[in-house]
């Protein structure tokens, strides 16, 4: 019972596939020749040209990037027809047959298309087979390429962070002062606790602009004192901070 409608949809699906755009003029010509059951060696040029132009006008049927090539083929077809119409004193020899060139091309193209369909099956088969060397390398445990940053980079990042902070547009509470020493201790404490500090995160955690600025100065001080190592993977990204002694054991 259920079989029938299923098959019907399958058929219409495959039908739709056949309606895919024609890649090139030979593609379309071959299709028309088969559709009209034309003998490829004796193509009625007028019939095929009319059909061909018909398809050209239905623009959804051809690959529009290739329109020029489709039009060129139309011109060739019309040229062949005009050659055939010319009155001649002697009948044409085999070699002079105006359709000859086109027929040769079509025959060759037809062969290529057939070879393609076989290769396509092979491709399909091969894609389902997996060999071990084809396995993508396993993702490395996250260890980014680290580069120590210069003070200029840090300063640059600082201004970016500043801008972000300013953009937050909050009110500065007056009267509170932050000591460099305290912040340095705070950073060290964070580092001792977690081993690593995401400075952008830390910066943003500061309660106000003043605290944020002091935290950055503290970081500079810590770097200067060679207590910490700061690393920025890429410009404008966060700065990661480690304690120096840890950095030695990391090597």
């Amino acid at each position: 019972m259920n079989d029938l409608p299923l098959r019907a949809t399958e058929a219409s699906e495959s039908y739709r596939v056949r309606l895919e755009v024609f890649e090139g003029p030979l593609d379309l010509l071959l299709f028309l020749i088969r559709k009209k059951k034309i003998d490829i060696h004796n193509i009625p040029i007028a019939v095929i040209t009319r059909e061909y132009l018909d398809y050209l006008n239905r623009e959804d049927q051809i690959n529009l990037d290739r329109e020029a090539e489709f039009v060129l083929m139309a011109a060739l077809l019309i040229h062949i027809k005009s050659q055939l119409l010319l009155p001649r004193e002697e009948p044409l020899t085999e070699g002079e047959e105006p359709r000859r060139f086109l027929v040769d091309q079509l025959l060759e193209y037809q062969k290529i298309k057939a070879a393609c369909s076989i290769l396509k099956e092979r491709e399909e088969e091969q894609l389902a087979l997996w060999t071990r060397e084809a396995l993508p390398p396993l993702p490395e445990p996250a260890e980014p390429d680290l580069a120590e940053v210069s003070l200029f980079d840090l300063a640059e990042t600082f201004f970016i962070l500043m801008k972000r902070k300013q953009a937050e547009n909050f009110r500065v509470v007056r009267g509170q002062t932050y000591s460099l020493e305290e912040k340095m201790k705070d950073i060290i404490a964070e580092l001792e606790k977690d081993g690593i500090l995401d400075f952008l995160d830390y910066f943003n955690r500061q309660e106000n602009l003043e605290a944020a600025i002091v935290s950055f100065f503290s970081l500079l001080e810590l770097i200067k004192a060679r207590l910490v190592m700061a690393v920025q993977e890429r410009l404008f990204q966060t700065i990661k901070v480690w304690l120096r002694r840890e950095s030695k054991s990391r090597q």
């Binding site: 890649e23 290529i112 393609c116 396509k120 491709e123 894609l127």
Partner: peptide, 13 residues
């Protein structure tokens, strides 16, 4: 797995 386009396959053959 990505397959070859029909234009690629044609050219390749």
């Amino acid at each position: 797995k990505s397959k070859l386009s029909s234009a690629s396959l044609e050219t390749l053959s």
